[in-house]
């Protein structure tokens, strides 16, 4: 059986990226926005792996490991900030955060 062509993977990753972007734009809780960002990062990972296979080049695959590590670090920082906010305000709804404007 032939392996699926690269375009399928890239199309799927584009779809994932679009879903993630929609999530960021429409969700109003910090946690859900953050989850959507993680979806966008994984879309990029899928694209990187697919391209690495089609070019026969390992650099793209190693890049995926680095992006995964960065995503993990981002989770640590992001959840710490969200927890700090939740302790003060008992909510993670981003519409409550509106002191700074103008």
């Amino acid at each position: 059986m032939d392996p699926a062509p690269t375009t399928y993977y890239v199309a799927l990753s584009g779809l994932l990226f679009a879903i993630g972007m929609m999530g960021v734009l429409t969700r109003r809780t910090a946690i859900m926005m953050f989850l959507s960002v993680e979806l966008m990062l994984n879309a990029a990972n899928l694209a990187l792996v697919a391209f690495a296979r089609s070019w026969g080049d390992l650099a793209g695959q190693t890049a995926v490991f680095i992006v995964m590590t960065l995503a993990a670090a981002e989770v640590a920082i992001g959840l710490a900030i969200i927890v700090a906010i939740f302790r003060q305000r008992e909510t993670t709804n981003v519409d409550v955060l509106a002191t700074l404007k103008g």
């Binding site: 960021v24 953050f34 960002v37 990029a44 990187l48 391209f51 089609s54 070019w55 650099a59 981003v94």
Partner: peptide
Amino acid sequence: LKYFLLGSVGSAVLIYGLALVYG
């Protein structure tokens, strides 16, 4: 929190752009 949420969206967009340029 504003910096983190918008900054991480920016990073995700940038990483996807990086993947496409690599492709």
